[in-house]
Design a protein around this nucleic acid. Structure first.
Length: 409
DNA sequence: TCTGGGGTCCTAGGACCC
DNA sequence: TCTGGGGTCCTAGGACCC
């Protein structure tokens, strides 16, 4: 068997993955749910997270709620509560920062932690460090996590998945091959179904098969992201460790049922998405220079269009006309739509005004939106919204109708 | 995996410039 | 107005991730 790296710990990267995160947060908030079959995902009828008890009964992610109930009678189905999960996430990352200053917040329930060189500081092995992290999170948040440690990010991902829940797996450089031979190629982070089926044509079935291919083969058939994965599997760090968290784009999508062809309704849905993404952008003090919209038809076709903005903005009132313009370019009255999406991109930190803008007018609008943000923070998301997006709120939410802004009371 | 929502990065090809 | 070569910027679309 070939050795892929001679050194055991040239660097130590941990990957932490919370176990059944959404459900664990629900169980931590309501201990009566512990040990039971629980799923999250009531609102759209699809299971998006499961307790280990429910997984054991054969319920799977993506399954219809009705199907889950049939397989697992008595399963408790909950609405998702992303704000709550976000709070757990923030606290989990705070705990990690006590152990190492170099953290990559990869997703709401996953992080990379650079532990290189910390064995001396804590006078313990990397596994023992992982165990301390695991215990701190369990004690303070009542949720469990699995940790993998290895010499690259891809290998650390494989390690954290190797044993779950509450697992700790360390893959030193000189033992890589012992683990990779048990990992199917499609289970490697970064290898999707397309690339997996391409590789299978060349008899690559496991991660080890891939890691042992010639570099010339990889360069001939695959592009940069896959070459990085290949290098990382062989123990050569190639994927950057990203500490910053500023988003590159902000989007909001919302499906509705039944599909609709009504222009005013679809536009109001878009406008609501615009308001929510603008609010998020303002929270990060970011402004967009590009605005795109996506319309999904009832048969899952996507139509999209992008508009360049004359000046960066995160103010719906300033963007409504741009939105309407691009919407009318791609909206087709003969089609029925089931989802709209707004993407703000080209995000900049500083908002620069062009010489031709009426600065005092813009500042007034911005001060109105500061007030709007404060009200929404106190009374709930989108309590105040544009009059034109009213159509996408239920009648009981609509009590005060002003021409420009609506205030939900 | 039959269809929820929020992201990132890469590549090919066109427009435009010298 | 037939025709080189090289560079940059931008966009659309693909693939993948949680």
């Amino acid at each position: 068997m070939q050795v892929l790296s001679v050194h055991s710990w040239p660097q130590a990267i941990a990957h932490l993955d919370a176990d059944a995160f959404f459900v664990s947060c629900e169980q931590a908030s309501r201990p009566a749910l512990k040990g039971k079959c629980v799923a999250v995902g009531k609102e759209r009828g699809i299971v998006i997270a499961l307790s280990y008890e429910a997984k054991a009964k054969g319920v799977k992610r993506g399954m219809f709620v009705s199907e889950a109930k049939r397989i697992c009678p008595g399963i408790i189905i909950l609405d998702s509560n992303h704000e709550n999960y976000g709070l757990f996430s923030v606290r989990m990352f705070e705990i990690l920062k006590r152990f190492s200053p170099k953290i990559e917040e990869y997703s709401v329930d996953e992080a990379f932690i650079d532990l290189t060189g910390l064995r001396r500081l804590y006078s313990c092995s990397y596994e023992e460090m992982a165990s301390k992290i695991q215990n701190a999170i369990e004690k303070e948040l009542s949720i469990t996590v699995s940790v993998g440690i290895s010499i690259t990010k891809v290998l650390a991902k494989i390690a954290s998945k190797y044993k779950k829940p509450r697992g700790i797996t360390a893959i030193p450089g000189n033992e890589i091959h012992l683990y990779l031979r048990n990992i199917l190629i499609e289970d490697v982070w970064g290898i999707g179904p397309n690339t997996a089926s391409l590789l299978k044509k060349f008899n690559v079935r496991t991660a080890l098969d891939f890691a042992l291919k010639n570099e010339s083969f990889v360069k001939k058939y695959l592009s940069k992201p896959y070459i990085q994965v290949y290098n990382e599997l062989r123990g050569k760090p190639s994927i950057e460790f990203i500490e910053k968290i500023s988003p590159k784009s902000i989007s909001k999508a919302k499906s509705f049922y039944p599909p609709s062809d009504k222009e005013s309704f679809i536009f109001s849905e878009l406008l609501k998405n615009l308001e929510l993404s603008c609010a998020k952008a303002r929270r990060f003090s970011l402004a967009a220079t590009k605005l795109s919209i996506f319309l999904k038809t009832s048969d899952f076709q996507m139509f999209s269009i992008e508009a360049k903005l004359s000046s960066p903005s995160a103010i719906p009132l300033m963007l409504t006309e741009n939105l309407r313009e691009v919407f009318l370019k791609i909206y087709k009255p003969e089609l029925a739509y089931r989802q709209t999406c707004v993407v703000m991109s080209g995000l900049t930190e500083k908002i620069q005004y062009s010489l031709f803008d009426d600065i005092s007018k813009i500042e007034k609008i911005i001060s109105v939106y500061n007030a709007v943000d404060n009200i929404n923070m106190r009374f709930g998301r989108n309590s105040v919204h544009l009059g034109a997006s009213s159509d996408s709120y239920s009648p009981k939410e609509r009590t005060l109708n002003l021409p420009l802004l609506n205030i939900k009371v």
